Amino acid sequence: MSQRLEIWSKLPTMWKPQHFSELASTISLTELPQKIQSILQRQIQGRVLVKVSSS
């Protein structure tokens, strides 16, 4: 178990991707239908994070 905790503790520090902002984009829930169409047409690279809260 201690090895697992050690690995998890390294994820947000040592192993955090250097250019994460280039690998992912954040969209609102209202933008999702249009983004889904882009995904289906293979126009998207990386990850898409959907912000579902209003704050």
Score class of each variant (00 low, 15 high):
residue 1 M to A: 11
residue 1 M to T: 10
residue 2 S to E: 10
residue 3 Q to G: 06
residue 3 Q to Y: 04
residue 5 L to Q: 08
residue 6 E to F: 04
residue 6 E to G: 02
residue 7 I to N: 04
residue 7 I to T: 03
residue 8 W to P: 03
residue 8 W to R: 10
residue 9 S to C: 04
residue 10 K to P: 00
residue 10 K to N: 00
residue 10 K to A: 07
residue 11 L to V: 03
residue 12 P to G: 05
residue 12 P to F: 05
residue 13 T to I: 12
residue 13 T to L: 10
residue 13 T to A: 10
residue 14 M to C: 02
residue 14 M to F: 11
residue 15 W to I: 09
residue 16 K to Y: 01
residue 16 K to W: 01
residue 16 K to F: 04
residue 16 K to G: 03
residue 18 Q to M: 10
residue 18 Q to Y: 08
residue 19 H to Q: 09
residue 19 H to A: 13
residue 19 H to R: 13
residue 19 H to Y: 13
residue 20 F to Q: 13
residue 20 F to T: 12
residue 20 F to E: 12
residue 20 F to L: 13
residue 21 S to H: 11
residue 21 S to R: 13
residue 21 S to P: 11
residue 21 S to N: 14
residue 22 E to P: 07
residue 22 E to M: 13
residue 22 E to V: 12
residue 24 A to P: 09
residue 25 S to K: 15
residue 25 S to G: 11
residue 29 L to H: 02
residue 30 T to F: 00
residue 31 E to V: 00
residue 32 L to T: 00
residue 32 L to G: 02
residue 32 L to D: 01
residue 32 L to S: 04
residue 33 P to C: 00
residue 33 P to H: 03
residue 35 K to Q: 04
residue 37 Q to R: 06
residue 37 Q to T: 01
residue 37 Q to A: 04
residue 37 Q to G: 05
residue 38 S to I: 04
residue 40 L to W: 01
residue 41 Q to E: 08
residue 41 Q to Y: 10
residue 42 R to Y: 11
residue 43 Q to Y: 06
residue 43 Q to P: 05
residue 44 I to W: 06
residue 45 Q to P: 03
residue 45 Q to I: 13
residue 45 Q to H: 15
residue 46 G to L: 10
residue 46 G to H: 12
residue 47 R to A: 15
residue 47 R to D: 11
residue 48 V to A: 06
residue 49 L to R: 14
residue 49 L to W: 14
residue 49 L to G: 08
residue 50 V to Q: 11
residue 50 V to P: 11
residue 51 K to N: 14
residue 51 K to V: 14
residue 52 V to R: 15
residue 52 V to N: 13
residue 52 V to H: 15
residue 53 S to A: 14
residue 53 S to D: 15
residue 55 S to I: 15
residue 55 S to Y: 14
